[in-house]
């Protein structure tokens, strides 16, 4: 069995967490490789959310890659669509399309657009790219479940920069009114946006209090979104929480895994030059090897 199959089938929680960690480490390497090879795409926000998206697709979500349009599938909206390379990497290895396609990222005629396009890529539930749309669309998807009496879940991932958009708060307010069952927002709070840190560009704290004041069910703890044990713990907490809509704030590191790229807005979307790539690669390989050793 490969790592993907092991992660999907493992039932022991401790082992599962380790398998998911190893998988996320491998995805991170693959993402960096493609972004370097293509000299285009966004590293920082892809890296910060790598554990989270891996856990969603290899553990949490009820999906069937053979039937990407299955009516009862759980939905995922990557509102911070610039992390497209992360979504594509996870979808490919989850079986939605061949990993061989990943190398065509952003090429002309490729099915892998710069930002996710649901019309072109199997498994993408909503096209994104312009920030601020995700929660609104998620409200609509979750309300459709209510009307159709379906029990699928709708997950929306936003960055804290994505929450600068006024529309995000229109959507947050409306979700508190309609209380759609199954709507969960996951905040990838890496504290850095395009131009600088969120504290510099647009301070967002106290984020949990804001959601609370807007009438959301906020998980009481802020989880480490780069730590698989904590992510799985947050999922358990989500299952215990009862009222809708729900939100989890994850503390993450932008550019996670490459020491000199971490927490720097300059690595939000800059092309990865050869020198930086050669320095970064061994760091990610080392982390992967360490994670693999845990699941031998």
């Amino acid at each position: 069995m490969n790592l993907e199959q092991r992660a999907l089938t493992e039932t022991d929680k401790v082992k599962k967490s380790k398998l998911l960690t190893a998988l996320a480490c491998r995805f991170r390497m693959e993402i960096l490789e493609v972004l370097h090879a293509k000299q285009t795409g966004h590293w920082g926000g892809a890296s910060s959310a790598c554990e989270l998206v891996t856990a969603l697709y290899f553990h949490r979500m009820r999906i069937d890659p053979a039937h990407p349009e299955w009516d009862d599938r759980d939905r995922f909206i990557l509102s911070k669509g610039h992390a497209s390379m992360l979504l594509y990497t996870v979808l490919a290895h989850r079986g939605y399309f061949s990993p061989a396609l990943l190398g065509t990222f952003r090429d002309i005629d490729s099915s892998l657009q710069g930002h996710p396009c649901m019309k072109k890529t199997p498994g993408v539930d909503m096209s994104t790219g312009a920030l601020g749309h995700g929660i609104s669309v998620g409200v609509g998807m979750a309300l459709a479940a209510r009307i159709h009496r379906k029990d699928y879940q709708t997950y929306v991932m936003v960055g804290e920069g994505c929450l600068d958009e006024g529309q995000s708060w229109e959507a947050i307010m409306s979700a508190a009114k309609f209380k759609p069952e199954g709507l969960t927002v996951l905040v990838d709070n890496n504290g850095v946006q395009l131009d600088g840190t969120s504290d510099e560009i647009m301070p967002i704290s106290p984020l949990e209090d804001k959601f609370q004041a807007f009438g959301w069910n906020v998980l009481p703890k802020t989880y480490d979104g780069n730590n698989m044990d904590e992510i799985l713990e947050s999922f358990d907490a989500l299952d215990r929480a009862t009222s809708w809509p729900k939100v989890v704030v994850y503390r993450t590191v932008k550019g996670k895994g490459v020491s000199f790229m971490e927490g720097k807005n300059t690595w939000h979307g800059a092309p990865i030059d050869d020198t930086s790539f050669e320095l970064a690669k061994p760091e990610l390989e080392k982390a992967y090897k360490r994670a693999l050793a845990e699941v031998r």
């Binding site: 669309v137 959507a171 409306s174």
Partner: peptide
């Protein structure tokens, strides 16, 4: 009333919620 949603004075949110509803086969 079960098929009507008044989203308040928020036209951006209005259009996108409709988009979400439409992905699941409804006609907003």
């Amino acid at each position: 009333p079960d098929r009507f949603f008044n989203v308040g004075v928020a036209e951006a949110n209005l259009a996108d919620i409709a988009g979400g509803l439409a992905t699941a086969g409804l006609r907003p």
